[in-house]
């Protein structure tokens, strides 16, 4: 399988305006609404925080990559989907007449961000919306690998999860909204091998690898997409080797996953300076 190159990144979370803001830990408490410039203002007002966060991260990554939002294939990932919209519908179900809002119902589907952005960008090609719990980022990278192998030039992976309805989860497991995006291309054939970074997805391995930085905010650790922040950190730090994409290593009931990467600063690497990082997904080893 051919390695993939990351050519653009994006992120949004309350207090985190962009991928760079995250990596530099420039947290801004005033940052409470995603800009989501790709969405028309009317749609932006109607959209959930999850969809606006995804739209912001997607826009940032696509702009950095120089790709066209109308033609790039998109893979949206979310472990729980439109949880806040679902909570509104469940409240309506519990009301006297139990009638649902048609607009909220249409916006409760897992592919709401995928659909709204395809409409906003007049993107008539490939889009999907997938879920795999804490492995959602990995599943999205695998889907992207399949699309690139099938001849797509570029793929945007956008992972996002919103805060779960507070009454449905334990207090200790609450998490804040988070979105992150990565634009991927197949590594050019003439790229020097020494700069190739391998991204090995491994399920169920012993936990002997470095983990989340100690300054990882508590309110994001349990977000199923927290792995994306670890990947952003690793790319920015030029990490070579294995990192654990697991912000909650103490959770024995969850499947941990690891990503082995090397970046443009790998020894002997002559990477294209326009690339933010490189990775290669390979099949997971048997557990």
């Amino acid at each position: 399988m051919r390695p993939m190159v990351i050519t653009g990144v994006g992120a949004w979370s309350p207090g985190v305006a962009s991928a760079a803001a995250w990596v530099e830990r420039r947290l801004d408490p005033a940052q409470s609404r995603p800009a989501a410039p790709l969405l028309p203002s009317r749609e932006r007002r109607r959209a959930s925080l999850l969809t606006r966060a995804a739209a912001s991260a997607f826009g940032e990554a696509v702009t950095q990559s120089g790709e066209d939002a109308a033609t790039i294939a998109t893979v949206f990932g979310s472990a729980y989907g439109e949880g806040s919209t679902l909570a509104l519908l469940l409240d309506q179900l519990s009301s006297d007449d139990g009638a649902l809002s048609p607009m909220r119902f249409a916006g409760s589907v897992h592919n709401t961000a995928s659909g709204m952005l395809s409409i906003a960008c007049d993107a008539r090609g490939f889009t999907t919306s997938i879920a795999a719990g804490e492995l959602t980022l990995i599943a999205c990278l695998q889907e992207a690998a399949g699309l690139l192998a099938d001849g797509h030039d570029a793929v945007a992976v956008v992972v996002a999860d919103c805060a779960a309805p507070a009454s449905l989860i334990a207090d200790a497991e609450r998490f804040d909204t988070l979105a992150a995006a990565f634009v991927l291309r197949a590594r050019p054939a003439n790229s020097p091998d020494s700069s190739v970074l391998s991204c090995i997805v491994d399920l169920g391995q012993p936990s002997a690898l470095p983990r989340a930085a100690t300054d990882f905010p508590a309110q994001l650790r349990f977000n199923p997409c927290a792995a994306a922040l670890l990947l952003l950190d690793a790319i920015a730090a030029g990490v070579t080797g294995s990192i654990a994409l697991d912000a909650t290593p103490e959770r024995v009931d969850r499947q941990p996953c690891w990503l082995t990467i090397a970046t443009a600063s790998a020894p002997g690497g002559q990477a294209d300076p326009s690339t933010v990082g490189q990775l290669e997904a390979t099949e997971p080893e048997a557990a």
Binding site: S129, I130, A131, Q142, L147, P284
Partner: peptide
């Protein structure tokens, strides 16, 4: 234990799983 995900694109969800699977088979993964 191979790669996997849930596709949830409303009423097209389980048509698209055929595509996800066949792409990864074609890619040799």
């Amino acid at each position: 234990t191979g790669p996997g995900h849930v596709t949830s694109t409303a009423c097209s969800s389980s048509g698209k799983v055929f595509a996800s699977a066949s792409r990864l088979i074609r890619a040799g993964i």
